[in-house]
């Protein structure tokens, strides 16, 4: 047992952080969404991420992937979360997998080469068939290049969003995200993968947990920095336990989320029996940490936190969106209770 990163993994993290800082910073995404472009990532930056192999990092080599595990992907997604990098990362990476493992290798290659795939968000008025077909009202996140991933407990599929009816764009809480609403009579997928072959939804829990962990860590650091730098009443505000203690709580929650997310990623990589339970636990821990930490950071920032003068508002909105994209917490908690516990 060893939960520490290896030098190779540290290199992935460092390279990712520097790329994100260079190409997908919040300053860059602000320029995009303020001029009305969503997802707020330039085509060039997205293509550069594809070039780095980000969409095939965990894909087995036989499918043209890099061949790392979910653990490495989790480390990458934590950096994506920390940077608040815009774009449909989760669904693109998972769609490449659905395509490859279901035999649609051309489609997999296209996705890996940089065709982004959006995410279909479940609503109360929609149904997913065993073959990955979809009916009813759906919301689509960042499905601007025509494809979207559909996830359910029993199947994962890719749909062609051009075939959906009544498609309309609505502003998203997270201004970097492209949100569309649509309805489907019954739309068959262009590729699908039964959960019996691979449970893609469990991987989604882990990747989203990783992003939420990165968001929580960003918030923790932003709050701590401010608590050290900001002076009121002649002292840094961090000397007050009213500030110090919530900062400490953020540190604890972020560390728990990080540890559980890695545990879950390894549980899936090692095909443990309790993989789904661990993945859901990671999602729950990281969603809680992200919600608590981003809102607490706004409080620590004071008036500035309530404005666009600081990035905290972007992170609070992003956490709000990502902790809901696989359906709300009640669903995850109910499922968590149904499962047998940890092994």
């Amino acid at each position: 047992m060893d939960l520490l990163t290896s030098p190779d993994q540290d290199e992935i993290i460092a390279a990712a952080a520097s790329f994100l800082n260079d190409k997908m910073s919040t300053d860059q995404s602000r320029l995009q969404f303020e001029s009305g472009t969503t997802p707020a990532v330039s085509n060039a930056a997205w293509a550069a991420a594809a070039e780095l192999g980000w969409f095939a990092l965990g894909l087995p080599e036989q499918f043209g992937g890099v061949g790392f595990g979910l653990a490495e992907e989790a480390l990458l997604f934590r950096e994506i979360g920390r940077a608040a990098a815009p774009g449909p990362f989760v669904s693109t990476v998972l769609a490449a997998r659905v395509a490859a493992l279901s035999g649609a290798q051309d489609l997999a290659d296209e996705i890996v080469a940089g065709r982004g795939v959006g995410l279909t968000v479940p609503g109360s008025l929609h149904a997913i068939g065993e073959d990955g077909s979809i009916a009813g009202e759906v919301q689509l996140l960042d499905a601007t290049s025509g494809l979207a991933l559909v996830l359910s407990p029993s199947v994962a599929s890719i749909i062609d969003v051009e075939s959906l009816g009544d498609r309309s764009r609505v502003p998203c809480v997270d201004p970097t995200v492209d949100l569309q609403r649509a309805t489907a009579n019954t739309l068959s997928p262009i590729a699908h993968l039964p959960a019996s072959t691979e449970a893609v939804e469990h991987r989604a829990h882990v990747l989203i947990a990783s992003m939420l962990t990165g968001i929580a860590e960003w918030a923790r650091d932003a709050a701590a920095t401010h608590a050290i730098d900001r002076v009121q009443f002649g002292k840094p505000i961090g000397v007050n336990q009213a500030i110090k203690h919530p900062c400490a709580d953020m540190a604890v929650q972020a560390q728990l989320a990080y540890a559980q997310t890695l545990f879950a990623a390894l549980a899936i990589d090692e095909a443990r029996e309790d993989a789904e339970f661990q993945a859901l636990s990671a999602h729950v821990a990281a969603a809680g940490a992200a919600e608590f930490s981003t809102s607490t950071t706004i409080q620590v920032l004071g008036g500035m936190g309530f404005t666009h003068e600081h990035d905290a508002h972007l992170y609070v909105k992003r956490a709000e969106v990502w902790r809901r994209t696989l359906g709300g917490m009640p669903t995850h908690l109910a499922r968590l209770l149904e499962l047998s516990g940890p092994v």
């Binding site: 109360s124 809102s295 706004i298």
Partner: peptide, 25 residues
């Protein structure tokens, strides 16, 4: 729930998003 993703001021549910964000103040 997932209606909270949208923030279009002409939609009723968006009032809840607006109130949530305003509550930070």
């Amino acid at each position: 729930d997932t209606n909270a993703l949208a923030f279009a001021l002409d939609e009723d549910d968006s009032d809840w998003v607006d109130r949530h964000l305003m509550a930070f103040s």
